[in-house]
Amino acid sequence: MNTMVETMNRVTDALSAVELAQERAFCQTVGDFTVPNPRMTCRDVEVWYGPKQAIRRVNLDIGRNEVLSMIGPSGCGKSTFLRCLNRMNDTIPGCRVTGSIKLDGQDIYDKKLDPVLLRARVGMVFQKPNPFPKSIYENVAYGPRIHGLTNSKAELDELVETSLRKAGLWDEVKDRLDQPGTGLSGGQQQRLCIARTIAVAPDVILMDEPCSALDPIATAIIEELIDELRANYSIVIVTHSMQQAARVSQRTAYFHLGDLIEVGETNQIFTNPQHKLTEDYITGRFG
């Protein structure tokens, strides 16, 4: 009799596992993940860390001159997905990315493509400001110099000034360009990192919680800057601040346990999300 009960339990467990697998396999993103004339297109993107799957069949377009925010609880895969966009995951042992990610129609995982060149086109700003232990000038000049973007010192000076101006930092540092970048305040360091990123003329800027280490005033300055940068670049930002996502982005994508649950206009996501998981997350109903 006991054996029969055990067998029944095993069958029930197996059926539940199948149901769960089916449910996960057919997870469909709510909302339109496409945009007209996209800068980047991601199709059926899956990421594995060894045997563990971190991202499941994500389809998402990144538009030109738009800010796309990616939100979701910790461990949902938003930063993993962000790092796929400029092949930062290549540096992680055991990480495997499948599917297709294209930048202006070109597969960024093409073996012929140099990841260093890719990362110039798809720049990244990290959670903690990480200026090089060099002067403010050198922090910005380093990228253009190694990529050979300028022909003379005068051109490089101009590029450094333009980049610092675009990052809203020029007026604060123009008289101390030879001083260490690490001597700036946290907010200034983050803007220096943004200047360093835009100095190599990227098409896309990825930002992984760029304001989480900053005070509200420095955060406001960065948010203002993001809005200005949108005129020239596509920006993808991962943030844990719902208000920040609502303030800076035009589209929002919500991730949950490796699935892209919902994507849509930011206004719609924050006023009338279509998926209950999205609503539960943004209204603070997650246990």
């Binding site: 469909q28 699935d259 209950k276």
Partner: peptide, 17 residues
Amino acid sequence: MNEQEGKHPSTDLTAGH
């Protein structure tokens, strides 16, 4: 998870935070 559960008229909309 794929099912769009929509709105829930029967539950208390002010609760669950």
